[in-house]
Design a binder for these strands. Structure first.
Lengths: 233, 233
DNA sequence: AGATTGCATATTGTATACAAGAAAGTGCGG
DNA sequence: CCGCACTTTCTTGTATACAATATGCAATCT
């Protein structure tokens, strides 16, 4: 049982936020599985706090879409269907296009050189073959573009959407045959932004998401097949 | 004092949700003003419940961006700056374009005729000059398009964004000189969707938001001017 | 006079107690 | 052996009690 996630006491943060972060992380990393019930006293005992902070944390997770409430039954970790994932990706595609587009006109020289460095760092990371390193480099690259838009709300929304599919992020990063493609896609995005070519930037961003979608959907279908097989023994 | 909003008991809904809806409405309609503090005992007494449901409702409002938490100080109604409004509208523009685009290929015949009817109803409403009626007709029109996309997440996000600027909605609906323009814009959107012309639909949606943005920003600037004047007496 | 410290009070943060409803088990009758 | 009703227990929903901290005021010191 790797099931025992513990609180990282942050002392000055309210307990509800500590619990919120802890539970969110547990859901996103798969320690808490889709469909699993979140029982208040159980969590309270486990984390060594009372039910109150637990409940308040759940209210926030509920609005983030990570848990669903069943009236008079309690909270459970939200299941992600292929449909809901497609819905999320459909929105993300539009927002990522917007981000690339906005970044073209708003990026600073400094950010532009950071972006170049980040793209190179990502390429180096793919050589190391350590998925965590690659993932970090990927996030760093996209964070710079997002920052360049200067739109806080946009940033917040995209982060939340990305979160919904966090557990599938490694799927397309683990596949080494895709690495060179990812590097090319990044460089295409970088060049489009460099040239202030909004059309090209949007399209590059769209293609980037499209490819992720394909990989993730394929993975999900496989997972489902496996589950069926398991049930049919 | 129009300050006394009351609970609409929904009996089967948990109190926290009733409180949540009540407070949200109060914020959106301006009964609770930006910067105003939300004190738990005060609200609890006023609404005749204990602090617990109040707190849980505030947690949700917090995540919706309608209130901001100040640690150990409490919650207050979020202020909306011109910048944050522009941020919101920038995102909404992209999402409304997406909605119009998706609706083109996914709308059913039935929804199409509903949409035609809604557009006509909106035109009739502008003749009555009752702002509430007009607002309802406007919402109905856009709801049909949104529904046609079949994307639940998209719907949820756009609703939330629209909410942020709810109190300014009447600004562009009250101005009668704009009515004929709005009617034209709606009919443009309807025709584009009817013809399954995605490009045209997106553009029509974009223009629709652009015009709203102009009206709202102008209104906000005016409001701010007024405030300054008030302070400088 | 101004600043500073200490106290009183108000307000949030957390824990616990109590109420009510749902689910699961148990026993009885068919 | 199966099904239905009753009871028990578990879990959420709500209220309240207690703790910790910030704020404002006043008195005192410089």
């Amino acid at each position: 049982m790797t099931d025992d996630f513990n609180l990282v006491m942050d002392d000055f943060l309210p307990l509800r936020d500590v619990v919120f972060n802890t539970l969110r992380k547990a859901i996103l990393t798969g320690q808490l599985k889709p469909g699993e019930r979140l029982m208040e006293v159980h969590l309270a005992n486990k984390l060594g706090v009372s039910r109150t902070p637990i409940r308040e944390a759940i209210r926030k997770l509920e609005l983030e879409g990570l848990v669903v409430m069943i009236p008079r039954k309690g909270a459970e970790v939200a299941k992600i269907s292929e449909k809901s994932l497609k819905d999320v990706l459909e929105v993300r595609r539009a927002l990522d296009e917007l981000i690339a587009n906005l970044a073209c006109s708003r990026i600073t020289r400094e950010q532009l050189s950071e972006l170049k460095e980040a793209a190179e760092a990502f390429e180096r990371a793919t050589k190391t073959e350590d998925t965590t390193t690659i993932a970090k480099a990927d996030i760093a690259f996209h964070d710079i573009i997002m920052e360049a838009t200067g739109n806080l709300r946009l940033k917040q929304l995209v982060n939340n959407l990305a979160e919904q599919m966090y557990r599938y992020r490694f799927v397309y990063l683990k596949d080494e045959t895709k690495h060179s493609m990812l590097v090319k896609e990044h460089s295409r995005i970088y060049n489009a932004i460099l040239n202030n070519d909004k059309e090209a930037a949007s399209e590059a961003a769209r293609i980037h998401i499209d490819n992720q979608e394909k990989a993730i959907i394929a993975h999900i279908r496989m997972e489902m097949k496996e589950e069926e097989m398991g049930g049919n023994i």
